[in-house]
């Protein structure tokens, strides 16, 4: 019986686990993002750096 597929399946399982596992929170990290396309209602703001001095609440959501 050929068992050569076992490492392949193992590698796939590990990759899937790594991809599906929730990422660690970015807490404590400084974020400095510059938007490629200005957001809707950006009112001239193009990057997070321009908002320094003011708290920013980022709400990740979906339309569906």
């Amino acid at each position: 019986m050929r068992l050569g597929w076992i490492p392949v399946v193992g590698a796939l399982a590990l990759t899937s686990f790594a991809l599906l596992r929730p990422a660690p929170p970015a807490e404590g990290r400084v974020v400095d993002y510059r938007f490629t396309n200005a957001p809707v209602n950006a009112m001239g703001i193009k990057s997070l750096a321009e908002l320094r001095g003011k708290p920013v609440l980022v709400d990740f959501w979906g339309t569906r």
Partner: peptide, 16 residues
């Protein structure tokens, strides 16, 4: 979703 992140006045992520 939904998920929220609060970025503080100095650009540090406070909560996520």
């Amino acid at each position: 979703l939904p998920e929220t992140a609060l970025i503080g006045v100095d650009g540090t992520v406070i909560l996520q």
